[in-house]
Design a protein around this nucleic acid. Structure first.
Lengths: 195, 195
DNA sequence: CTGGCGTGTCAACAGGTGTTGGCATACGGT
DNA sequence: ACCGTATGCCAACACCTGTTGACACGCCAG
């Protein structure tokens, strides 16, 4: 298909890198704002001030563009040295800070509601990154997935109500207050018993 | 616009009621499965074994159809007589049962991620129905909205991970186990202090 | 039986979508 | 200075969308 492979190849910088970056930035914003279906390639291209056909040339298709734009790393810190008393607070604080400064996860969340591929990626992120991080705390390793699932339910519920649905009480609350309320929940899901 | 008002008027049954119901049922399923954008009127009409134009005649537009299909009552029980020790369990059990048997809320959730109107309705549902129910438990009435918001974050996070994203650990867990884990969280958001 | 109206189908429209190929241009190595 | 090639724009495609209007059938009152 291509004269040279777009992925594996050269660290040598291309002249079009700024354009590629502009497309990616515009795509992330549009996907975050409108979700996969409503975000049109034409609108993304307009935001990036280039022609829609460029998007196709550089990313192959809309799916390909989304795949590139939805690359996401939770950047979970290494929890192995963290005190079991503060791990909940640490995690909630981390997540709030993480997606307050990066629209990618909001985009993923919006899109994953309707797009099977995005949902699959979301499952992957939370299964791989979160589950493995959680596994270091679970006494019984077989319990790790369930605990990670519960943590995900509260963390994603927080993101959903605050950044997607924008329920006023959750939008107005300042991060410190949210941490104070939610941290104990995470703490219990990670380390506690069932009641 | 109309010769007679479609809402206020007659309890007299029309011959097309079965068709209307079939459309509504198909719409709820499609909206729940695909979200607002991907759910096409043509597909809904095909499910209902009817011509797309009928949908327009009976519901005016796609927005109108969604508005009719997304009518939703949480059916929260009266909490005023419930013991403060079991209200969390009662609520989680109620919610699981409520949307396990009705795809409407999943449809709303999927759609609210991208459709502003649906998000607004979602805000309305949780602001009105949940907040007022919660207000009966809050000692300080000014705290009710925040507590309701926190409850919504966990309840909707549960619905999101289990019914929309379908995270395996949350799908596989049986309801009783979920109740055992999540009920204490709700309990604390409703009645507890911040830590 | 005979109209009128509710119910339903068919075909088409206008607009927007992802996607494609061809053409201009300006860069960068030789 | 030259020429290949990367970069960009333009116009068009085939398709799908919500929506509309004209036409056919069958029920029910008179």
């Amino acid at each position: 298909m291509d004269a040279e492979h777009p992925d594996a190849a050269p660290p040598r910088s291309r002249r079009s890198d700024v354009t590629r970056a502009a497309i990616l930035r515009a795509a992330r914003n549009r996907f975050a704002e409108d979700g996969y279906d409503r975000a049109t390639i034409r609108a993304i291209a307009a935001d990036a001030r280039i022609d829609p056909s460029m998007v196709m040339r550089y990313y192959g298709s809309k799916e390909g563009l989304f795949a590139a734009a939805a690359e996401f790393d939770l950047r979970l810190p290494d929890l192995s040295g963290v005190s079991p008393d503060t791990v909940g607070e640490l995690l909630v604080r981390h997540f709030l800070h993480r997606w307050e400064g990066d629209a990618t996860l909001a985009a993923l969340l919006r899109t994953a509601s309707t797009n099977p591929g995005a949902a699959e990626r979301m499952r992957g992120i939370f299964a791989d990154q979160l589950s493995t991080a959680v596994a270091r705390f679970a006494l019984d390793p077989t319990e790790a997935p369930r605990r990670a699932g519960l943590v995900a339910s509260q963390i994603l519920g927080l993101a959903l109500t605050r950044y997607v649905l924008r329920l006023p009480p959750m939008v107005d609350a300042d991060p410190a207050e949210l941490v104070a309320w939610v941290a104990p929940t995470i703490q219990r899901y990670l380390l506690g018993s069932r009641d």
